[in-house]
Design a protein around this nucleic acid. Structure first.
Lengths: 237, 237
DNA sequence: ACCCGTCTGTGCGCTAGGACACATATATGG
DNA sequence: CCATATATGTGTCCTAGCGCACAGACGGGT
């Protein structure tokens, strides 16, 4: 992670951008832009956090890794959220990992500053709690989707959720990593992605996935995507 | 749901029981014991809630039902938690259902009272937020468990989580309902339960499941149970 | 005692996805 | 321009769990 001192543009993050002027002014000196690289670990299982991160262009996945090494994603955070909810929820740590899934920028804030501002009970607190509720919906829907839907549908959901949080139509992501996120085999992703490519929805070469036909993905995806998207829009829109 | 006017015993619920005397005294007049019957719906998908409920002996499952009617559980709440987190998280409603999974008592509190007390930013707020964080862990682990573990392991997890939240060794619960909770077929539950019965861990007849050998269940269950239990103990213990 | 609705047991064919084994293609650095 | 690590494609066998069909088995009400 590299730290920069150039002026921040907090409105690139929807939570910070929704703050009223007064609170925003108060926090501005405490905000610091950082750059995350692909695969960087934001926090480990049970690990302590000194900062919370408000992604701007980066995407961070919340993962759980089993004792036997297999893993699965519980949710992902982009410029509509914050990484490190345990710091204001009161637990300090979470029993999962946060890994950068798409390289890019974020804005960080010291844990203590966050907690003090949260304790004021103003707009910032309400925004963080509403985001957390949206995250709960996302995690829940992941639980249900894991149980009831095909790998191809889940891949669509994952691509759409990622696409919503990134400017470009191209995602830098190998099938191996997607398999870890979805908790399936890499070969399973290969065949599912192959079908989506045949249908013209996406194309991909060696870690570069391009969304060609978003409409088509939305036709293939299960209802889980819509539920999550609607809830984010309702709570944070 | 039947409402009673007899004196409450809030300490039957761990969240209320953890309140300092001052806050507890303030809330006491606002608490009202109620009785839930098996299968009762506490709230519907997107439905409004007038009260939050602190279960004492009841257990409430949070379920999501798909468009095609299949369903799966995201988490369950007993005397260590509260039903209706959307009321203090700010969203008002949740895109899921809450159904009474084990008949019993709860203590209810008007939404407005909850919100005012929450806004004070004292111990009550911290307790509710820590519980919510524990719930997030439970939902996450459900997501992962759904993906990676067998029906038999999940059944063990479900039995243990329920057993932890109930006084008795007997659970009133048909295999049909368990199947809905776990998001699997009823027949799948029958064979998994049959194996557990053969091993002497449980016995069951027509909707009455008895935990005979808890130790044995803990040996069969996946790590997910432990992760959830440890996190609840850490955050609320 | 009986009936009928509710629970549970079991069998069979089917499919998605896992484990494993390779084959092939594409960077990228020396 | 080659070597090698990395990414992707395929194929084969195996298992868990699904859908469906139906057969007991218990139990409460008339």
């Amino acid at each position: 992670m590299s730290v920069s001192v150039r002026p921040t543009v907090p409105t690139e993050n929807r939570l910070l951008g929704a703050l009223p002027a007064e609170e925003y002014e108060r926090l501005l000196p405490q905000l610091q832009p950082v750059a995350f690289s692909l695969g960087e670990v934001v926090y480990e299982f049970g690990g302590h956090l000194d900062y919370v991160y408000f992604p701007t262009t980066a995407i961070v996945s919340l993962l759980y890794t089993m004792e036997n090494g297999s893993s699965a994603e519980m949710g992902l955070t982009g410029n509509d959220g914050v990484v490190g909810i345990a710091l204001f929820m009161g637990g300090g740590t979470m029993p999962n990992r946060a890994v950068v899934q798409s390289a890019g920028g974020a804005i960080r804030m010291k844990a203590k500053v966050l907690q003090e501002e949260f304790a004021r009970g103003e707009k910032f607190q309400r925004l963080l709690l509403r985001y957390t509720q949206a995250l709960i919906t996302q995690i829940s829907q992941t639980a249900v989707c894991n149980r009831l839907h095909s790998v191809e549908q889940q891949l669509c959901r994952w691509l759409l959720l990622s696409h919503d949080r990134v400017k470009a139509d191209e995602l830098i992501m190998t099938q191996e990593l997607i398999a870890d996120m979805l908790g399936v085999r890499r070969e399973g992703v290969t065949v599912a992605a192959g079908r989506l490519q045949d249908s013209g929805a996406i194309s991909y070469v060696r870690g570069h996935i391009t969304i060609l036909d978003r409409q088509r993905l939305e036709e293939t995806v299960c209802e889980c995507y819509r539920v999550v998207k609607d809830e984010f829009d309702r709570l944070l829109g």
